[in-house]
């Protein structure tokens, strides 16, 4: 009798083991790393098509480029190594954090932490990052997420209407049927072109860095 009971428990155990193993392997596989830092870092050696510098002033009222417009939208070509320089403006703690998508997200990559952006007014801190996938990104400060937030647009076409000033400096040839032309291939390496978009009252609305 004892022998029989033991056997039947053993039999049922086989079914339970199957269910347990299914649950275990499913949990394991579904917890696979999907992206590294929200898809923002690629461990491979990325090709670098060029370099550009962006300087931002960190102020709790908003990011600005030397007291210019607040939270400018940054236009960056694909596969460019961007050297960010952040200058402390108000002595408060700030971070420089980016994530994919037009809004703040939880899957982020913090380029500069509060420790790196020391609360000493005028201190410059540096970080570089290469945007290797086209799309809209958000850059923001995790301490002041409501005020210090702006957008990065990677590989977007600087369509001819928005460029009003320095466009003649580069010999860009825009093919009109090309939605996503890679401007980067037409620019010389190590170049810095700034473009500004103004509204009808000649107020600068957006600054683009190309």
């Amino acid at each position: 009798m004892v022998e029989k009971e033991k056997k039947s428990i053993r039999g049922a155990a086989y079914g339970i083991i199957i269910i347990l193993l299914i649950a275990l392997s499913l949990t394991f596989v579904l917890s696979a790393p999907t992206q590294t830092a929200g898809g923002l870092t690629d461990p491979s050696n990325l090709p670098v098509k060029g370099y550009m510098n962006i300087t931002l002033w960190a102020d709790a009222a908003g990011w600005d480029t030397n007291h210019g417009p607040v939270n400018p939208t940054l236009y960056i070509p694909l596969d460019y190594m961007v050297n960010f320089t952040v200058i402390e403006e108000d002595g408060l703690p700030h971070t420089l954090t980016i994530n994919k998508g037009p809004k703040e997200d939880s899957a982020t990559l913090t380029l500069l932490t509060t420790g790196q952006i020391t609360q000493i007014i005028g201190h410059k801190s540096h970080a570089s990052y290469e945007f290797f996938e086209p799309g809209v990104y958000t850059y923001w400060c995790t301490v002041h997420p409501t005020t210090m937030v702006g957008q990065v647009i990677v590989n977007s076409t600087a369509s001819n209407s928005t460029a009003n000033s320095s466009a003649s400096l580069c010999n860009c040839v825009h093919s009109n049927n090309n939605e996503f032309n890679k401007i980067s291939s037409l620019l010389p390496l190590q170049s810095l072109v700034e473009m500004a978009k103004a509204n009808i009252n000649n107020q600068v609305m957006t600054t683009m860095v190309l």
Binding site: D42, L46, P47, L78, F132, E133, S175, E179, F180
Partner: peptide, 26 residues
């Protein structure tokens, strides 16, 4: 002229596609 994820062709005209693979940002 380069277009991404889309191309416009003319009807009844013969095209040769030369298909290759390039290294993107990966």
């Amino acid at each position: 002229h380069t277009t991404t994820d889309g191309v416009t062709l003319v009807v009844n005209h013969t095209y040769t596609f030369v298909v290759s693979s390039i290294k993107g940002s990966h």
